[in-house]
Simulated scan of single mutants.
Amino acid sequence: MTRAAYAHQVTNKTTHALELRDVTKRHGAGDTAVTALDRVSLSIPRGTFTAVMGPSGSGKSTLLHCAAGLDRPDSGSVVLDGHELTDADETALTRLRRERMGFVFQSFNLVPTLTVAQNVALPLEFAGRRVDGPQVRGLLARLGLGDRLDHRPAELSGGQQQRVAIARAMLSRPAVVFADEPTGALDTQAARDVLRILREAVDAGGQTIVMVTHDPVAGAYADAVVFFSDGRIVDSMTRPDPASVAARMARLSTPVPQGGNVPAAPIRQGGVQQGGVQQGGVRRGGDVR
């Protein structure tokens, strides 16, 4: 059986929270056009934590935007929780973002005039859904914010504000939480706390998380790391550790001679299979296929 045939079989047997199939996205037109995503295929199984990494301009943020329906690809298909996003109109996309997606950003994006509890409940109110007060309080208590329910964002530290944003993203039990540099504005201890919370949401709560980050320490909290360069997936790694992630990022950031290729990472048992993500996606606890 060929690798492609095997990957197709694996994909068909696996339930995925998110699938991108041959997604291409260009910015600009004519001679100045830039291909941000170049026929990218990626499958994310439910209940996994995937980090997307690469140099600045590699396409990782464009990937997140297309995967979340915040931007439309020029070609290809995006399926989230069984819903095709690329053909959906804006009303349907808005509904899906409210009901099936959660978002955590570097800048927290909390409403300064609302309390912690009100900020967490806000997406449910926008969606016209009933807010379960005990559920909100219980979630915040688990995140170490049980005594901050009535505080405003300005009364919290950066790490506490990011935990509020995580609670807001997870309250509705979305199919996927998209995290865009969630630790970028935090100090080392606060960043570690936030990453631990995201890790526990996957391990204990079965949440699916896709995180864009440039930080090798943050990437090491994931089940798998997908590396981007020039709009393409160039490598992947399971069971990542900070040193291995940092080494791979260093290779991606090294200037490549004209006509050359990105330096390849060695294949290590139980760790990396080059090109495998394009064929089938990320499997938790095993190789990328």
Rank of each mutant, 00 (worst) to 15 (best):
P257H: 10
A7L: 09
E84W: 08
D38S: 13
H151M: 06
D230Q: 12
E84H: 14
D180M: 08
L85E: 02
G28M: 08
F105N: 06
S253P: 00
R196S: 09
A218E: 03
L42A: 09
V282M: 10
L252C: 08
L110P: 07
Q273I: 15
V40I: 06
L114K: 07
V10H: 08
D180I: 07
G280H: 09
L64K: 08
V120M: 07
E125T: 13
A264L: 12
V245L: 04
G138F: 12
A201C: 12
Q279K: 13
M249R: 03
V288N: 15
G158C: 03
R100L: 11
T113R: 14
C66G: 04
L139T: 13
G102H: 07
P182A: 10
P257W: 08
H65R: 13
A175S: 10
V272P: 04
V226D: 00
G30L: 11
R97G: 03
L37N: 02
E99T: 13
D71M: 11
G76K: 07
Q258C: 01
K13W: 10
E19Q: 15
T11W: 14
D38G: 11
Q189K: 15
A222C: 04
E200H: 09
V288T: 15
G144F: 10
V131N: 09
R192M: 10
F103E: 01
G54A: 05
A224Y: 00
R46I: 02
A179Y: 04
G219D: 00
R284Y: 08
N109E: 13
S61D: 05
A179H: 03
T14I: 12
D87Q: 14
G260H: 03
F228E: 01
V136H: 05
G144T: 11
L139E: 08
R3Q: 15
P123Y: 09
E155S: 11
P55D: 09
D71F: 01
G275M: 10
M249C: 06
A88R: 10
S172P: 00
S75E: 14
C66T: 12
L140A: 06
D203R: 14
